[in-house]
Amino acid sequence: MILAQLQIRGEDDAGDSCVADNGFCPSWIADNWERYQDPFLEHLALTLISVAIGFVIAFGLALVAHRRRWLIPPITQITGILYTLPSVALFFLLLPLTGRGKTTAVIALVAYTLLIIFRNVITGLEGVPAEARDAGRGMGLTPRQLLWRVELPLALPAIMAGLRIAVTTTVGLTALVFLAGAGGLGEEIFNDMQFRSNVVVAGGLCVLLAVVLDLLVLAAQKLITPWTRKVAT
């Protein structure tokens, strides 16, 4: 077949009937655990970097668009097109500009997060009750103070919801960046797609990473928005 596939079932496994029968082999997994360590960390780093950059850009765009309402439709359209572009296609469309590697991967992943985060920040800011704004103005807050002290805190649940979607989606997409030569857990899956133990471990690590990051963002949200916690009555 196509890209060079590595044979990860080594010579010393030849005697292992479980590996030979392509079963699900706990002993093989225990012996080969370190194999997945670096790709896992690579996967984590790519995800965090991409979401962080995407958040900064999308959050900035949303703050600008919050002041100048007419910017919302064009920004939504442009980020929408970036969201629609298949990331695998984007990896190769970027080839002539940024070549193969992590830069290309991060650009494609960032492009994908923009719409998700932008949309949620805008939705959150729009959901702020008019009374809260009025009260803030009545207290003599400037527009800037109003934004940072009233509107953004009230928009936090929606913003964090967007961040959660962005994080889980990006973990899934990062499994494809090996096509751009950027490694990650996807490369381990691809190295031996027929070997059950390999697919289950590498795929399972992806899902585990997504779930853990999702729960961390959720915990962070609960921590910074204490008023959304249910009050015992």
Partner: peptide, 21 residues
């Protein structure tokens, strides 16, 4: 839909190929 987002497409395809060769 939340869980679905977290499952990488390449892993899902590989799962089918590995378990139904």
């Amino acid at each position: 839909s939340n869980v679905g987002r977290a499952v990488p497409s390449v892993a899902l395809i590989a799962l089918f190929v590995a378990f139904f060769p």
